[in-house]
Design a binder for these strands. Structure first.
Lengths: 241, 241
DNA sequence: AGTATTTGTCACAAAATTGCAATGATACCT
DNA sequence: AGGTATCATTGCAATTTTGTGACAAATACT
């Protein structure tokens, strides 16, 4: 539930101010005073969102943001830029580069929190680590494992092996069942906004997910809704005879 | 194929963000920072679609939209409203006034592009995702399912399978019941304005819809009004008095 | 560095949907 | 009753949408 937010800001006072407010709101906060430091921290802990000061000592915020967008693990992390300047070209550069939002100093803590919430809201499945169990499938985010919860198939451990993307896809579907998701929606919520990927790529990952589920006979949970998208449903998909 | 899209947005950063993404997708983009400027531009170039910020400096977005709807040349241009507010009355006002869709900030670039494509492809209202329940039928846009809500045929699976067009047709009919719609009106509202399709084709889709409803004995809800069109009504049609 | 996974895209196959036209049925009018 | 306009029904070809395997690039692992 508690999202982790990384602050990259060289001015200690502002860093403290933000940090205090975010912790107060219930976020886990990581602080870095330079882009270099931030880069190291990212290797250890992946934040759910980055607050990035535009003006940094050595490496500019822009540069750091680009690095984030390049790395496979980090490319989907939302970035909110903090900028003191009202320089238009900066905003433009930042947004083109893929920042999710920007906020100009001075800002009110309330506004900052509001923007953070807004950006996180349209994000990957709520950062919950709770075990999801639907339709005879059990997915555990902490252990990163998917198993069949109906026993019948076998007394053996019936673990389903998935690639990272298929795992996130299944996680999202299992936490948003019965509802039809368009390919675009899935890309936004499972891949992330700035990741530019063909719509049809979703098909392929759905296919991979289904193939994995076939082994345990659970593949009919992932259903195609023609002209609309895909759906995870425990109800039979064919009303036929 | 490159459609021209006009952005009317006073905040330069957002204007840039949108503009960048749309150009990236292959659209030709025109930018205006005010309604006045937009009006002038429209005299030179007719865009295929207008992205309109709700809050503008002098003339409001609503006002500009009305102007567009008044002009003979511009009345058919689809409008997508950009709104920071989630105020219901705004949505309603905007949609009633003739906006084709609305999108609330913050939005993801992909979602925006998806909506633009959807609107350009067929000017569908698709305003509500609310479940519609009439005459013992239940249609849920989010799960994309149609079921019978009377219990009687319980043993059977009560789901009704429809193709995309029949689904949209039924959705429209169920949200506009007890009223006769001409074939042209149905084509406009269900297929979209600029689509050229024979009037008679509606008959075929009505037939397909009826056939699907026959399975659960609900086909008499879709009634023919000779010389006028079709109607969805819960009242029995044997009007022979 | 080398190897194994993972990922996105493409091309083609398969399946479903769509619109039209031709034909048959029905209601309305004189 | 007959004539005519309107609607119903069906088959079919064209189009659209989705499934699937292969492949190359990118990334992670040793």
């Amino acid at each position: 539930m508690a999202a982790t937010i990384m602050i990259v800001e060289d001015e200690p006072a502002i860093q403290e101010l933000i940090s205090y407010n975010l912790r107060n709101t219930g976020y886990v906060v990581l602080c870095a005073s330079s882009a270099e430091q931030a880069r190291e921290m990212v290797n250890d802990v992946l934040p759910d969102l980055v607050l990035l000061d535009w003006m940094l000592p050595n490496m500019s915020g822009l540069e750091f943001a680009q690095k984030l967008r390049q790395g496979a693990r980090t490319k989907a992390i939302p970035i909110i830029m903090l900028t003191a300047r009202v320089d238009e070209s900066d905003k433009v550069a930042g947004l083109e580069m893929g920042a999710d939002d920007y906020i100009t100093k001075p800002f009110s803590p309330r506004e900052l929190v509001a923007r953070i919430k807004a950006v996180l809201r349209r994000r990957l499945p709520e950062v919950s680590d709770e075990v999801v169990e639907v339709g005879g499938l059990k997915l555990d985010p902490t252990t990163h494992r998917v198993t069949v919860s109906d026993q019948e198939s076998a007394a053996k451990s019936t673990e389903i092996v998935l690639g990272p993307t298929e795992f996130r896809l299944l996680h999202f579907l299992m936490t948003h069942t019965e509802r039809v998701h368009t390919r675009s929606q899935l890309l936004d919520r499972v891949w992330g906004d700035h990741v530019f990927v063909e719509d049809r790529t979703v098909d392929v990952h759905i296919r991979r997910l289904r193939r994995a589920l076939e082994d345990v006979g659970k593949d009919e949970l992932v259903q195609t809704v023609r002209g609309a998208g895909y759906r995870f449903s425990t109800r039979c998909e064919v009303g036929a005879e």
